[in-house]
């Protein structure tokens, strides 16, 4: 084993890690924006409204992320309409294809997490909104969404870590994320153990940062819960 290659190629690995972080950050933010209306529609009593989110979530949770990436990257270019449309400059870039696939995928999971959180709010608190004469919109804005935000944190932090690990799949469509960069280096140096160990270590470090951030936000957000504290597994 020769760990000098790790030292030599460490800056390249960090470059890859930066791409991974971008992919995760962008798709998580966009995913949350997409997830919110989907979660709200999913809660509706009305079959017309909840049918679409139901199918959406069913599809994206039920198929592998890798298949979804391939569908966007290889699939979209099969259609002339796509290639001739204004979207082509975006859809031709593997980077944006990965972001689109990740966003769609994480939004489905996140929508379910949001829905669970909104439905976990005790019915009495909802009734308290009704009896002061709040409209539905006021109820969501003032009570349900802020409450759900606190409830959602542990599960949501988990989803972001899953997304970080899932982002390694971006390397299959030529993106030089952390995994892609590691494989490129290995192809040159034939040192798979050293480089993959280093890459694994960097993934671990990023996970730990995400966990630490979420623990802080949770502490702040849930301070009003007094004695209740929610533990996040310390596995990194």
């Amino acid at each position: 084993m020769d760990f000098s290659v790790v030292v030599e190629y460490f800056p390249r690995l960090l470059e890859g890690a930066w791409v991974s972080v971008q992919l995760v950050a962008l798709s998580v933010v966009l995913g949350a924006l997409v997830a919110l209306p989907i979660a709200l529609a999913r809660i509706s009593q009305n079959w017309w409204i909840k049918g679409f989110p139901y199918a959406y979530i069913f599809f994206f949770r039920g198929t592998p992320l890798l298949v979804q990436i391939f569908l966007v990257y290889y699939g979209a270019s099969q259609f002339d309409v796509v290639r001739e449309s204004f979207l082509w400059p975006i859809l031709r870039e593997p980077y944006w294809c990965a972001i689109i696939a990740f966003t769609l995928n994480t939004s489905a999971y996140t929508a379910e997490i949001f829905r669970g959180a909104i439905q976990a709010i005790p019915e009495g608190e909802v009734e308290a909104c009704k009896v002061v004469g709040m409209t539905k919109a006021q109820m969501y804005r003032r009570v349900l969404l802020p409450r759900a935000f606190g409830i959602v944190l542990p599960a949501y932090g988990n989803e972001i870590i899953l997304m970080l690990k899932g982002s390694a799949l971006a390397s299959t469509i030529t993106i030089l994320d952390l995994t892609g960069m590691a494989r490129t280096i290995i192809a040159r140096t034939y040192t798979p153990i050293e480089i993959f160990l280093a890459a694994g270590g960097i993934y671990l470090a990023i996970s730990m940062v995400i966990i630490a951030i979420f623990r802080q936000v949770e502490k702040r957000q849930n301070r009003y819960l007094g004695t209740v504290s929610i533990k996040v597994p310390d596995k990194g």
């Binding site: 009495g124 009734e127 802020p146």
Partner: peptide, 9 residues
């Protein structure tokens, strides 16, 4: 309400 139902946040 019997169970107060204050908004805890």
């Amino acid at each position: 309400f019997q169970s107060f139902n204050l908004w805890p946040h």
